[in-house]
Each structure stands twice: as structure tokens, then as C-alpha cells.
Write a protein that binds this DNA or RNA. Structure first.
Lengths: 238, 238
DNA sequence: GACTTTTAATTGTCTGACAATTTAAATGCA
DNA sequence: TGCATTTAAATTGTCAGACAATTAAAAGTC
């Protein structure tokens, strides 16, 4: 019911920002003034401000004419928070591999038509580069996964919708720990690289149907790989 | 480079949680002990802990055998953060109505096949109830929007994938302020209600194609309405 | 006019204290 | 003994005051 003072103050300021009563780059009163206004001590005000800083809602500057300023939430900041939240959610809530996989590929397939329409040369180049990397000899599983993430990110960015990019960043990156559990044999990799090539080709030809088809197969194949890992684990324990 | 001590300490503890060195419900050392360990004062430790609390990474309890505990990130907590972040991102970054709309409906269409397959009676009931509400006389624009959000939420939940629900919660709710700018005439509403009915009918019949078609039309129609509002505004200013 | 120094404002950090809260242990009582 | 009550201890929440570090503007100097 009656939460901490610092939480209450943080909420009051947060609401002011969300409702537009405090606008971007506006300076908040100094800590001493806020302490007066809210009738609390400066440490309490500081705790409230740190809460807001943790959500990237404000930034602080020292020195004369410094202070706390309403922060423009940048895409990178939003990405970072989205990734942290998604990663924790997946690691702490027994989200099954299937559910995470399904969500991720469903959203990626949602991007496909836009990507086919809007892809630029640099997106294709990035994807081709990752495909080449994925075929390299002696690549560790982790490096393969990292390249996989980069490939899919290029695909999503090709859709040219920053909101989709931001949403998917969380899903794709958050899945990496789960993907890292998978051991990729040479044959696995060849199949995945083949599908990646289909996707790149489809985008180059601006053929959304091809891309969608390849993504559907990739989704199914990834789920199969995940199941194999879980099955192998289960039999090892028995 | 050398950020605040409280930020460094928060990062150290956050990393420990993300990497699993601190597990759910584990108790952190007391503030005094942490202050000793990190060789800083207690207020500095407290600022760090408040940062983590703002991200729902820990919770604190007063009293003997109280302290800070690693928090299991619940879906509601994750929803809330997702919504705050998305709302701010949209309101602060001149994300165009088109881009937000496109992202939202793209993701909703990604849910459609799963929803058609897995929808339960209660999802359908919730959607029908919202449709009825939307047809009520004298409904304000805001109430109409709120009902619209509830309708689409039921649709997303029908897909039965909590990760998709969580991702879309942000997109749908964050768009509400933009949607609230639109004035819905009786004719607008009738058209939207018609499409909503198509969606509900399609789900009931487990016909994904129908649902997809209706969502596509709804996306196009919503964009049109958005454009009209912007055009009206522009002409008023001139 | 360009450069340097001073000054004032502000955040960052520390120390020490006390209040509020909560659990475990101690105590008292039947 | 068994149960209720009180006490004690640990811990977070809050406060007050102080000083250090940083920064930009203002004042001074050549």
C-alpha cells in the first residue's frame, strides 16, 4: 500500500514524463529543490532519480548548470532494455524452447514481406557475409550462433521498420542462450546455410513467398534440433 | 568511462543475476555487507539497489531476515516495462503513425494462424463482448479505443504463446495515445466493428485466411483514418 | 581579443544517526 | 509442557550535515 518514498517520488516524476508534463531535454529541479518540494531528504530524492535513470528516463550531469534532464529514449537504449527483460523472462520462467522459437519465427515471418520490398544492397551484403562466415571451417558453435543472430538481424532491419526491429531485437537475442545449447553438426550447418541462402536469394529477387517458405522450414528445422538436444539430455540423465 | 559507483555496483549485481551466479529468491548480502564488499558507503549501495529494483530485478523486505532478494521476473512485470518503454519510444521519437501501425498489424497477423488453431471459448466470448460494447450508443472515442485494445489483446492471447503476448502488449498499448487522436465517426466505427466481427467469425471457424484478410483490411483502414487526422490538422494550421 | 583564474552551482560520496519493521528468541503464565 | 506475550536483534527506510569532484559562466589579466 504505502510504498517507499523514493518509489512514490519516482512514480510522480515518471508519470509527469509519460504524460508530457515534462518534455525531452527539460531540466528537473535540482536535488535540493526536489527534496524541498517533496518534503524529503536529498538521499531519498537521489534514490528516486536513480530509479528513473535505470529506466533511461533521465540522465544526469554534474557541475554548474548540470542536473537531471529528461532523456530522449533512444532506440539503442530501448533495445538494451528489451533484451535484458526478454532474456530474464526466458531464463527465469521456464519458457519452452518451442514457445520461444515459435514467437521468434512468427515475428520474423511478419517482417519478410516488408524486407522483400525494401531491402537495400547493404542488407543483402551483410547477410551474404554472415552466410560465408557460417560456412567457415573450425567455427565454434557459439560463433555460429552469433553469426546466426547477425544474419537474422540484418533480415529484420531490411524490413525498414524501426519498431519491428526493436521488438524483434529482444526476441532474437534473448533466444541466444537457448540456441547456444545446441551442438551444430556439419550437416546441421549445411542445412541452415542452405536456408539462409534461400532467404537471401528471395530477398534479392524481392520474392516474399520464397523468403516465407524458407523461414517456415528454418523454424521447423530449428525446433527439431531443439528437441533432439532435449531428448539427448533426457536419455543421458536416465 | 568511469561512471558512478552506484551504476558500477548495479551492473556487477545485474550481471551476476543474468549469468545465473545469483539465482531466483536468493538473498543478497545486507546493505552494510555490500558496502563493505564494494568498499563504498551504504547510500551508494542503496542507490545501486534502487536501480535494480526499478528493473524488477530485485525486491526488498524490511525487518530481521529481510533484505534484497533476486526477483523472478513475472509476465505482468515484463508487460509493464515493455509498455512503458514502447510508449516512450513512440512518443519521444517521432515514430510516424504509419510505422507504428505497420509494426502492430504485422505482428498481429503473425499471431492469426496460431489463434485460429488454438482459440478457446473464452477468447471468443471476450472478443464478442468487446464488439458489442463498441456498438453501444454514446460511447466516447477513448472508451472505443480502450475496447479496441481489449479486443486485440484477446486476439493475441488466443494465439496461446505468452512470448508473443508479451511482445505485442507493448506494441498495442503503446499505440493507444496515437489512436486516441482519431475521432471515430459512426461510419468509421461501423466499418471497424464489421472487420472485428469478421475476425471473430474467422477464429470461430478456425479459418486463418479469413482472419488474415480482415486484419489486412483493418490495417489499411486504420492507416487511412490516421492520414485523415493528420491532413485535417495540417489544413487547420495553414 | 584571447587566455587564465575564480566562483558558484550541482551532483557524487561519506559518516553517523535514528525510525520502522519484522522475525526469532526469551519470557511468563496457566 | 504448551501457548501467548514480550523482548531483542537484524535490516531496511529516512534524515541531517558535510566535503569532494565537476562544470560552465563570470571575472580578471595580458
Amino acid at each position: 500500500m504505502t510504498s517507499d518514498l523514493s518509489a512514490q517520488i519516482a512514480k510522480a516524476i515518471r508519470d509527469a514524463i509519460i504524460e508530457g508534463r515534462l518534455i525531452v531535454d527539460e531540466r528537473l529541479p535540482s536535488e535540493a529543490e526536489l527534496a524541498d518540494q517533496f518534503d524529503v531528504s536529498r538521499p531519498t530524492v537521489r534514490e528516486a532519480l536513480k530509479r528513473l535513470a535505470a529506466q533511461s528516463l533521465i540522465r544526469t550531469q554534474r557541475g554548474a548548470f548540470g542536473g537531471a534532464f529528461v532523456n530522449r529514449l533512444s532506440y539503442p537504449d530501448a533495445y538494451a532494455q528489451q533484451i535484458t527483460t526478454s532474456t530474464l523472462l526466458l531464463s527465469m520462467n521456464e519458457v519452452s524452447f518451442d514457445v520461444a522459437c515459435e514467437a521468434r519465427f512468427a515475428m520474423e515471418r511478419a517482417c519478410a514481406p516488408f524486407a522483400a520490398q525494401r531491402r537495400q544492397a547493404d542488407h543483402l551484403a551483410a547477410m551474404r557475409a554472415e552466410i560465408t562466415r557460417q560456412g567457415a571451417e573450425g567455427l565454434t558453435d557459439e560463433a555460429f550462433c552469433a553469426s546466426d543472430v547477425a544474419f537474422h538481424r540484418a533480415l529484420v532491419d531490411a524490413a525498414g521498420n524501426p519498431v519491428l526491429s526493436y521488438q524483434l531485437a529482444g526476441a532474437v537475442e534473448a533466444m541466444q542462450p537457448l540456441m547456444n545449447m545446441i551442438t551444430f553438426t556439419a550437416r546441421n550447418r549445411a542445412r541452415i546455410i542452405g536456408l539462409h541462402t534461400d532467404i537471401a536469394d528471395g530477398l534479392e529477387a524481392r520474392n516474399a513467398a520464397t523468403v516465407d517458405q524458407a523461414l517456415a522450414e528454418l523454424a521447423a528445422y530449428t525446433e527439431t534440433l531443439g528437441h533432439d538436444v532435449l531428448a539427448a539430455r533426457a536419455s543421458k540423465e536416465a
